[in-house]
Design a protein around this nucleic acid. Sequence first.
DNA 1: GTCTATAATTAGATAGAC
DNA 2: GTCTATCTAATTATAGAC
Lengths: 195, 195
Amino acid sequence: MKTRAAQREETRARIVEAALKCFSERGFLGASTREIARRAGENQGLITYHFQSKEELWRAAVDQIFGKLKAELGELPALLPSEDRRARARASIRAFVRFAAAHPELFRLMMWEGTCDEPRMQWIVDVHLRPFYEGPGFGDVADDELKPHFHYVLAGAASIIFAVAPECRRLTGLDPTSSEAIERHADFVAGLLVP
Amino acid sequence: MKTRAAQREETRARIVEAALKCFSERGFLGASTREIARRAGENQGLITYHFQSKEELWRAAVDQIFGKLKAELGELPALLPSEDRRARARASIRAFVRFAAAHPELFRLMMWEGTCDEPRMQWIVDVHLRPFYEGPGFGDVADDELKPHFHYVLAGAASIIFAVAPECRRLTGLDPTSSEAIERHADFVAGLLVP
DNA sequence: GTCTATAATTAGATAGAC
DNA sequence: GTCTATCTAATTATAGAC
């Protein structure tokens, strides 16, 4: 017998999960609450009940996926080899690539919202992105002037192939979500950025 | 005194230019023909007159921006130093980064459409992307297995910082469209991929 | 060629039954 | 909590005046 609170959380979770997929595939404007409800197997009216608006639902979806990133990166230091600084940097980049492969939605969402200087972008940057950018990071960047370049090169190099996986399959024949492709990509990116 | 044909082309060009910006910023679904017409300073009815549908207008916009890429890359070999193979590869990557800085719309459009296996993505890949992918390329990739990875690492590393320029400004304080930032990014990416 | 008016569809949000 | 029905506004595409 499920409690009312548990039932509530399950429904919310199903809606957030479907919303994350829709928003990341179609963008905030392109995604419709009706399609989100349909993919969640729930009713459209429930979205307004559990979240007040489409915008609130979008924020819940972004919170969820950044929560996963934070959790995965938070437990990273304990798993890394402590010997070599460069080996640690490479290992953390490989972990980041694996995260991008497992959760391309985050990077799709960022691409959608990063192109315009509007409230949704400002919220994402201030709430979720800045702590990440100013955190420990992946190895040290020699020159402070290079930090933004390093950040976006890593973000782009690590994630695009997974963010546009359907395109990659059609263009190259390679399924980037296969475990061999993920590991090859992780090695390639880590080797480039920490030679 | 302008001819009727010239007038026609000017109007079409204004609409296509506005469409490129709207589609790249809001995606196909998120962009409205009304906003496109408004930004072009034209009437909404004219879009249906000059292009039959929103989809046709989208294709015209994509044709235009890929035409620029083809033109810029086509005249590249003549401009490159002929001595050193690695120096030539670095120079062509720098040129690609400069193109991404000047025309972020192309990369935004690709991100929008690459995430779903739908007709618009298939059309872009078959008509525009495949010739580019199977063309001469930027230097040789040692291993054929690495070619897709090299392609998407280059595409991501070169373009993301410009595609999400507003986000980059807010997050890092750096304006990636400044000529210093563009050159620094070009040097950084070329140095990484051709060490 | 250009513009206005409008038809047909779909969107997000609301109200109320259960 | 969930679901159906509906309101208002916005969408693409069309028809026809000029």
